[in-house]
Each structure stands twice: as C-alpha cells, then as structure tokens.
C-alpha cells in the first residue's frame, strides 16, 4: 500500500486488515475510521526482540496501526520524504529518522562502523547516537524525516561520496558505508574530534542527505 504525500511535512496511508503500518511513537497526527495503536519492538529476533534491540542501541519504540481507516503521519514539524522499495536492494536508514513504513517490510539493525575498530570512538563522537542503521528489506513504502527535506546524491563506483554523519539520512543500493577520519576536515571545523568523523560511501547506489547538521531528537 502506498503512502500519500499530503504536504512536505505530512503523509497519509490506508490501514486495513493484513495491511498494518509501523510508525515511530508520536508520529500519528490524526486518523479516521476504526484504527488502534499498540507498541511493538522490532529488530533482531523479530517482534518482541526488545533485548536485541536495546543491545544494538536502537531504542526507538514503534507503534503498529491496526484496523481499517486512514492515518496521517508526521513528526515535530520535520520534512517527510517517501521512499519506495522495489525489493531489489534494502534501504538503510537511521532508526531515529523512520516515520512510518509498511509492516510487511522486514527490518534488521546494522552498525556502520563495524570491523573498523572505530566503534567505541564513533559512539562517543557522534553525540552518543552511534551510527546504527535499520535495514528495511522487501517491497513497500517508507517515510523518513529530515530537517528541510532530503536530497539524493549518486554513489558511483570508483568515485566515493563522503557524507557528514550529522547530515546522513539513509542509503539504498549496493553501497558500502565506512566510517573514516579526515584530519583536514577536523582542522577546518575546529569543533573537537567528533566533527572529524565522516561516512565514506562507495559502490553504486544513492545516499540521502538533509540540508542540516541537526540530528533528530
């Protein structure tokens, strides 16, 4: 079932038996019809895998909308972008940025800096939020939020795109994301080591960034 863009900050979607929607808690703005909302914890181990999720640092609880009707979603006046998944590649997106998605999509949690020995540093560096992303697999719609909207930047093979982690929203395609350090940038920004962390995206696909360095609270 598709999401409909009502305006740049609000989307709507139909809910029906067998067509449930998962959404960030607090993202429901209004609904018509007979719809109920209850909390779920998705992640490794599936629904109810609360422990796995907490370990992975993903703490955003999701609400499932069940019943039949229309639900409007938005969050804190932020911009909402709809991304359609055709099943060919998963979408990686920071859990904090997920507004809503089809419940039929499978989600897993991945850590971007894995294997680099950077984990401890990165967690502390990027305002304690870490660079965990949720991966969504399957065919369906995803609504993600950002400050001021997202722009899609191409990632071409042999020509990596480097992204400010604060501006990173998500990525699709055959893309490898690596946390890297850039000393020259640290010098330029001069705001402590945290700002020197960058996300280097290589392979081929698309990376979504927002026009701001503000993270979602």
């Amino acid at each position: 079932m598709a999401f409909e863009q009502i305006n740049h900050k609000v989307v709507s979607t139909a809910v029906a038996p067998g067509r449930e929607v998962l959404a960030r808690r607090g993202a429901m703005l209004a609904y018509t019809g007979d719809v109920g909302f209850s909390p779920v914890h998705t992640g490794p181990g599936g629904i109810g895998g609360l422990a796995g999720r907490a370990v992975a640092g993903e703490h955003v609880s999701m609400m499932v909308a069940q019943g039949s009707g229309t639900v409007y979603y938005g969050f804190a006046g932020l911009y909402v972008t709809i991304i359609e998944l055709d099943g060919s590649a998963p979408l990686s997106v920071e859990a904090d940025r997920l507004v809503a998605h089809d419940a039929a999509l499978q989600s897993t949690v991945v850590f971007l800096g894995e294997g680099g020995g950077l984990r401890g540093m990165v967690r502390g560096a990027v305002s304690g939020q870490g660079l965990f992303t949720t991966q969504l697999h399957g065919v369906g719609s995803v609504a993600v939020m950002s400050h001021g909207g997202t722009i899609a930047l191409p990632v071409r093979s042999g020509e990596p795109t480097t992204v400010d982690p604060q501006a990173y929203v998500g990525h699709v395609g055959n893309v490898e994301a690596k946390v890297s350090l850039n000393a020259s940038w640290r010098d330029a920004v001069g705001r402590g080591s945290g700002e020197a962390v960058q996300l280097k995206m290589s392979g081929s696909g698309t990376v979504y960034v927002q026009a701001s360095e503000q993270k979602i609270r």
């Binding site: 900050k9 609000v10 703005l29 209004a30 938005g74 804190a76 006046g77 909402v80």
Partner: peptide, 10 residues
C-alpha cells in the same frame, strides 16, 4: 472543519 498541521516541536 478541523484544521491540522504536522506536530509541533516540544
């Protein structure tokens, strides 16, 4: 008529 917006910042 009901008038709606995206939720406010806290």
């Amino acid at each position: 008529t009901v008038l709606l917006q995206s939720s406010e910042h806290a």
